[in-house]
Simulated assay, not measured.
Amino acid sequence: MKTLLAIRFSAMGDVAMTIPVMQRVLQAHPDVEIVFVSNKNWGALCEGIPRLHFFPADLKGAHKGVKGLYRLFKAVRAAYRIDAVADLHQVLRSQIVRTFFRLTGRKVAVIDKGRAGKKALARQENKVLQPLRSTIERYADVFRSLGFSVDMSATPPVFGRRSIPVGMEPKGAFKWIGLAPFATYVEKTYPFDKIATLLGQLVSQPNTRVLLMGGGAGEVAKLQELAERYPQAIVVAGRFKLPEELAIISQMDVMISMDSANMHLASLFGVSVVSVWGATHPFAGFMGYGQRIGKAAQIELGCRPCSIFGNKPCFRGDHACMEQLPVSEIIEKI
């Protein structure tokens, strides 16, 4: 049995995109196991995949700083005999950990993020608007570099449907539409007044329940405000732990999400996702696993995309990419 170490510390959506790749590697190579080092909170994403072992990294605690990363290296090495390392992150922390393993003679492969192509895609002048290699294929390339073939051309669901957790309203004969209206950056977030309009149209559909997704006290408060206006909506955020939220997502018929984590979580279960794109663009390679670009709600603007991750302020100052995106464009894609 060969043991590979895969590293991807954050964020949840990026971590979720590694899961189909690692599952496919393991299916193609029965003599391989993968130890996956990631944020300590994301272990539920690995559950149910044979020979995929989650190893939690506490980057704000025990594994903080160089000394902490050395402690992480020693802990992994004590628990597993690592044969090779797949760095799926290529940031300073992952560079440090992989260097420790390289110094012990282990083979290391590192993701090519395609920075030149992404820079050309997002620049204001002489923009090269063309699809780039997907992040999922870039993850697969790392394993290929280590000598492990993997075919990502087919996109079956990673996981099947799961039982609705205790405390969640029964689905019954209702159609469940997930609505995840938040993203890390405002440039990737549909305006809240438009979200309210969208929700009003969704709940007016017969036999439909809209499940409001999010995280953190601020987001939960905004979702509760929406649910007070539209009692047919159900606030899921803040009520369940990640494994239970994943079970709820698995039962959805459609997910409406920004370019954010919920798009990727729903994709793992084969749930159709209507993704909403503003400052970012599907051409950068971050579409959900198995999702069709025809389900991406977006408008054509010469300034789009203005950044790859949505972390740069709108240089126009009007957020036209989101403000001008009509609610009808999203409704039509459901």
Rank of each mutant, 00 (worst) to 15 (best):
Y80Q: 05
Y80I: 00
R81H: 14
R81W: 15
D83W: 11
D83I: 03
A84D: 08
A84G: 05
V85I: 05
V85A: 03
V85L: 00
A86L: 10
A86E: 04
D87R: 08
D87E: 05
D87N: 08
D87A: 00
L88P: 06
L88H: 04
L88R: 00
L88I: 14
L88G: 07
H89V: 08
H89Y: 15
H89K: 09
Q90A: 10
Q90I: 09
Q90S: 11
Q90G: 00
Q90R: 15
Q90L: 01
V91F: 09
V91C: 08
V91R: 02
L92H: 13
L92I: 02
L92E: 12
R93P: 01
S94Y: 13
S94V: 06
S94L: 05
S94W: 07
Q95T: 10
Q95E: 14
V97I: 14
V97G: 05
R98N: 07
R98T: 15
T99F: 12
T99K: 13
T99E: 03
T99Y: 15
F101S: 05
F101I: 12
R102K: 12
R102V: 03
R102C: 10
R102W: 04
T104R: 08
T104I: 09
G105E: 00
G105Q: 11
G105T: 04
R106C: 13
R106V: 07
R106K: 11
R106H: 15
R106W: 08
R106A: 02
K107I: 00
K107W: 02
K107Q: 13
K107R: 15
V108T: 14
V108P: 03
V108H: 06
V108R: 02
V108I: 09
V108D: 14
A109M: 11
A109Q: 12
V110D: 09
V110C: 03
I111A: 02
I111D: 02
D112V: 12
K113P: 09
K113C: 04
K113F: 10
G114D: 08
G114L: 05
G114F: 06
G114P: 06
A116W: 13
A116R: 15
A116C: 01
A116L: 13
G117V: 12
G117S: 03
G117F: 08
G117W: 15
G117N: 13
K119C: 03
K119T: 12
K119P: 11
K119R: 05
A120E: 03
A120D: 11
A120F: 13
L121M: 09
L121P: 01
L121S: 00
L121H: 02
A122H: 01
R123Q: 10
R123W: 07
Q124W: 11
Q124K: 14
E125Q: 07
E125P: 00
E125H: 14
N126T: 03
N126W: 13
